[in-house]
Amino acid sequence: MMSEEELRQKVVEVLAEEFELDPDIMTPDATLYDDLGLDSLDAVDMVVVLEKTFKMKLTDETALRSIRTMEDLFQFLLKLQPRA
């Protein structure tokens, strides 16, 4: 079971690597679209990367669509983590 801090670090690490982003700008309030330059074409790639990294299925389309910032993404993934 991953701690919240570990999860946050892991998300930043894999997205930085897979989308060639600078980890320093991936702050919680950074928006995926405007600040990180990801767009609708990247959305599916992101789902694939996160599913593979965290070995879970991301099926809640409404929740996925509402993700705007890194913090939204952290919270979305934290909710899916099994409780200790």
């Binding site: 897979e18 989308f19 060639e20 990247d42 790639d45 992101m46 694939v48």
Partner: peptide, 8 residues
Amino acid sequence: FRPAFRNR
């Protein structure tokens, strides 16, 4: 391509 798409 970004690594994410390439790996996909």
